[in-house]
Design a protein around this nucleic acid. Structure first.
Length: 567
RNA sequence: UGUCCGAUGGUGUAAUUGGCAACACAACUGAUUCUGGAUCAGUAGAGUCUAGGUUCGAGCCCUAGUCGGACAACCA
């Protein structure tokens, strides 16, 4: 029995419009209570965060209503598709934490069935072979405002159509000579109903069916029927397919499919500020080497986020928070950043790292002495334990943590001021050492031996605790500071004559050599850390102890940056 | 000069289906803190695109507009 309190304590989350529809279906006993969704990517590119929204939606719905979700590759266009993408898509879906029902499916699994359906439509006088060229067909289709005109081939006999279609199929007709078209209505206000193509001739090698076929079904003819064959109950896609729905229904009805049939429902795709999402543009970024590849940590691809240090949990949390609706939206990236900070705050071990070093000499600390100080790995997680960090007479601190002439609100180190070195000692700045040009090259400080571990023996307090790393023990690492790829919230808003690339952020990647506490050498590729007071970092996939590389996932919230106007 | 869809704080998403517009992010204030992080407490911000109508009562229903989006691949 469910605990009534637990049930009422858990805040009732309101349902989105798709959940509402499903619950209505369930109530009406539709599909005998089955809920079966599908995620149908075309294997012609890498998955991005927009796909993640769809994946979370489809798999999430199935989870919630005790149903199943198929992974189906929509591979009806052999000239653009490739197994390379099949593999990456499966990896990404699994990484997000979802398991599809049984084996992955392919639209190409149904080529035979689809072919039979096509013949059925021809036999019923609902499809015909059209010999119009692509240009002619396009001209005859009219425009959204003007009705099209019927093809001269529209009223061929069933026998002739059957024969012609057989020839298409058998490779007797060259590419481009004709198509099989549904006979619907050339005057329909919906362009998709103006005798859409069902099959085209393509002498292309298919990644799964090889050279078995030289005719391939179009999306509209393949999709709904694939849904039907798989027993999909709810076929969920993005808004731009809304005008396809009448055609989706037309095929299902006119082929005469019996039993449960699928219904298409559309939702608004994800748009993220400072991000481009279209496959074409992402491909362009890769091809023109603006980024290093599909998994460049600045890319909004799943593999990009993975390499950047995002967790599956954070992306699922994000998908949950953005909701599902039908109106166009532009989600603020800060929400995504909030999700990864929230997740990593609980999970990531802390470490000390200095990215912009300033040397500090602790003049009253014995020369040659080293001690190991205990540091907490994660204050948010008691089980994370502690580690030892070496300390010595010379340390590096962050340049930003010192100001010779500090403004009022600057709490950190300044001449004559005392701060705490995290987990180490209270130190006081006595001298500022400069070179001939007046640049600060080092600080001379003194420490209070009584404050070992960072404790305040006499109860006195300091206004700041800063991070540091022992000069003698520090290890160098390449640190990649990633920032948003575009400077404009909507990169497509470009000046006349310019495109989204004019909005690229020139500082989307800064390489620095960081000085890290030695324990960081034990990191493994993909491992996530919080560099205290800086941000979350992830050991790159190419990380080795010989050549350590860390990627910045996201910075920590920085109220000082706000106060000082750096943000 | 078409068809379809949409419109609620800065951004998203809700509103028991006709009953005092809520939640999250962002912002701001304060407390607290060995991370200017985290945490906690609090503040501000929309009267729901416009105009009519129905109703005791409309963000929800009706009518007419306005604005935005999608649709004219042998792409998906």
């Amino acid at each position: 029995m469910v605990d009534a309190n637990a049930a009422s304590e858990e805040k009732k989350k309101s349902l989105n419009f798709i959940e509402l529809m499903i619950e209505e279906d369930l109530k009406n006993g539709k599909n005998n209570g089955r809920v079966h969704t599908r995620f149908p990517p075309e294997p012609n590119g890498y998955l991005h965060i927009g796909h993640a929204k769809s994946i979370c939606l489809n798999f999430g719905l199935a989870e919630k209503y005790n149903g199943k979700t198929n992974l189906r590759f929509d591979d009806t266009n052999p000239s653009t598709e490739d197994t390379e993408y099949v593999d990456s898509i499966m990896e990404d879906v699994r990484w997000l934490g979802f398991q599809w029902d049984k084996e992955p499916y392919y639209a190409s699994d149904y080529f035979d069935t689809l072919h039979e359906y096509a013949i059925r439509l021809i036999e019923n006088g609902k499809a015909y072979v059209c010999h119009l060229t692509q240009e002619e067909a396009s001209a005859n289709r009219g425009t959204p405002n003007k009705p099209g005109i019927e093809s001269p081939y529209r009223y061929r006999s069933v026998e002739e159509n059957l024969e012609l279609f057989r020839k298409m199929r058998n490779g007797e007709l060259p590419e481009g000579t004709c198509t099989l078209r549904a006979k619907i209505d050339m005057a329909s206000p919906n362009m998709h109903l103006r005798d859409p193509a069902m099959y085209r001739i393509k002498f292309a090698h298919h990644h799964r069916t090889g050279d078995k076929w030289c005719i391939y079904p179009m999306y509209d003819f393949a999709h709904g029927q694939s849904d039907y064959v798989e027993g999909i109950t709810h076929s969920i896609c993005t808004l731009e397919f809304e005008v396809h729905r009448p055609l989706y229904d037309w095929f299902v009805e006119n082929i005469g499919l019996t039993g449960d049939r699928p219904y298409q429902t559309e939702f608004a795709r994800l748009n993220l500020s400072y991000t481009v999402m279209s496959k074409r543009k992402l491909l362009q970024l890769v091809n023109e080497k603006i980024v290093t590849g599909w998994d460049d940590p600045r890319m909004p691809t799943i593999c990009g986020y993975r390499r950047r240090g995002y967790t599956p949990e954070s992306i699922r949390m994000f998908a949950d928070k953005i909701g599902v609706a039908k109106r166009e939206n532009l989600i603020d990236v800060s929400l995504l950043e909030h999700c990864i900070r929230e997740d990593l705050n609980k999970k990531a071990n802390r470490a000390l790292a200095v990215l912009n070093p300033l040397k500090m000499v602790i003049t009253n600390y014995p020369e040659g002495q080293t001690e190991e100080l205990e540091a907490i790995n994660n204050p948010e997680d008691e089980n994370a334990g502690t580690r030892m960090v070496p300390f010595s007479r010379e340390v590096y601190i962050e340049r930003d943590d010192f100001m010779e002439d500090p403004p009022k609100k600057f709490f950190r180190l300044a001449p004559g001021r005392e701060v705490r070195l995290r987990y180490a000692y209270f130190i006081k700045c006595n001298d500022v050492i400069k070179d001939n040009d007046g640049n600060i090259v080092a600080l001379h400080c003194t420490y209070d031996p009584e404050s070992k571990g960072g404790k305040s023996p006499d109860g006195r307090s300091v206004k700041a605790t800063i991070h540091w790393v022992s000069a003698e023990h520090a290890v160098k690492a390449e640190v990649r500071l990633y920032d948003r790829l575009f400077v404009s919230p909507n990169p497509d808003d470009a000046e006349e004559g310019k495109d989204f690339k004019s909005n690229l952020n020139p500082d989307s990647l800064k390489l620095v050599t960081g000085l890290l506490e030695p324990s960081l050498l034990k990191a493994t590729p993909g491992e996530k850390y919080q560099f205290e007071r800086i941000g979350y970092f992830c050991a790159d996939k190419d990380f080795t102890p010989e050549k350590p590389v860390f990627n910045r996932t996201v910075s920590l919230k920085d109220t000082w940056a706000k106060v000082s106007g750096q943000m």
